[in-house]
Nucleic acid binder design. Structure first.
Length: 338
DNA sequence: AAACAGCCCTGAGTGC
DNA sequence: TGCACTCAGGGCTGTT
């Protein structure tokens, strides 16, 4: 269930290892993990082998690595390696000497000028995740396509309260006042339709509120729509709605502007807190690039808490099926209104 | 255009 | 011990 905080932890962990690294070898152990790649596995291998990775970038739950191929012809379009973790995907940093992980699907061997050899292992139990090569295009609003550089985690340690201070957000690839490189202003074609996430400095709040007001469907459905607001999955939708005292099926259009603004504040707070705790792990489904679990599962108020007392009022949390997913909520705090 | 059902996918967990 | 069954849900496609 990697959502924004989990994907950001992975991205931040990969960034120093991949930036400036050259891909020396690519192995596809499971072709279905290339479902989003437009072309055969051989094409993926050929174009990526010898390439130099420029950065690790994230928007919502999508991760990508802009790269320069080994051979570049004039007029070639810029490319990126796109990764989505789906439900159970992991990207792990391994030594080449280590035996393969059991559910390894794709393996990239990298040579880094400073860090030496490193192996990037794409592990995915359910094969809902994928990797692909894709052309990039300029962002529609001209702003940076997503988070790169040190990003949200900055130089802090997990648990550092400074993590929840947006003023500490890293200035990005160009540095303070610097002009971002071309790759930072470009987004892979298959990610271009994804909305900016709520931690993105270029997130358009006014657009979010107006689109929310135009929808008659339930608020949870809206929060899970990655074309409206990205990065939120089932866990953080339930947590944000609990924090906002909103019922999952409350029509989006029924929210006042003030209530919608409060919801956005809670969404950001939940995401930042989870980020500071290294993400949400239940078992081995989500781990960082070193295989370590996050701690946010200890901070959950609603998700997976059915049968336990609501931390706010003591009423037992309920779980119902909604949109083919579990929805967890407090029947007293989160009443359907209007 | 928006809403929504259906599909993909398999290891872990459970009950017998 | 082993078998059948259930569960988890993000993103995309197609239909209404």
């Amino acid at each position: 269930m990697p959502e924004l905080p989990e994907v950001e932890v992975v991205r931040a962990g990969l960034h120093p290892a991949v930036t400036g690294a050259v891909v020396s070898h690519v192995a596809i152990l499971e072709p279905r993990s290339l479902r989003r790649h437009d072309g055969p596995a051989e094409d993926f291998v050929d174009r990526l082998t010898g390439a130099t990775l420029l950065s690790a970038v994230r928007r919502g739950k999508f991760l990508w690595f802009p790269f320069v191929p080994e051979r570049v012809a004039p007029g070639d379009r810029s490319l990126a390696l796109v990764a989505h973790l789906g439900m159970s995907g992991q990207v792990l940093l391994r030594d080449r000497e280590q035996p393969d992980d059991r559910l390894l699907r794709i393996r990239l061997d990298l040579v880094h000028p400073d860090h030496g050899d490193v192996r990037l292992a794409f592990v995915d139990q359910r094969i809902f995740g994928s990797m692909a090569l894709d052309v990039t295009e300029p962002t529609a609003d001209g702003a940076e396509a997503g988070f790169s550089g040190a990003g949200l985690l900055g130089h802090s340690e997990p648990g550092d309260p400074a993590l929840v201070d947006p003023a500490r957000v890293d200035a990005g690839p160009g540095g303070p006042g610097g002009r971002p490189p071309a790759w930072a202003l470009s987004i892979p074609h298959q990610v271009a339709h994804i909305a900016r996430d709520p931690l993105d400095p270029a997130f358009d709040e006014a657009l979010f509120f107006s689109r929310l007001a135009a929808r008659r469907s339930g608020i949870k459905r809206a929060l899970l729509d990655q074309e409206l607001i990205s990065g939120i999955g089932n866990i953080y939708a339930d947590e944000s709605l609990w924090a906002s005292k909103l019922h999952f099926d409350q029509p989006s259009s029924s929210l006042s502007r003030r209530k919608a603004a409060l919801l956005l504040v809670e969404i950001r707070a939940v995401l930042l807190k989870a980020l500071g705790e290294g993400g949400t792990s239940f078992d081995q489904q989500y781990v960082n690039v070193n295989g370590q679990s996050g701690y946010f599962s200890h901070s959950l108020n609603a998700y997976g808490q059915q049968g336990r007392p609501c931390p706010r009022c003591g009423t037992l949390i309920e779980r119902v099926s909604f949109m083919n997913r579990g929805s967890h909520f407090c029947p007293r705090c989160q009443r359907l209104r209007g």
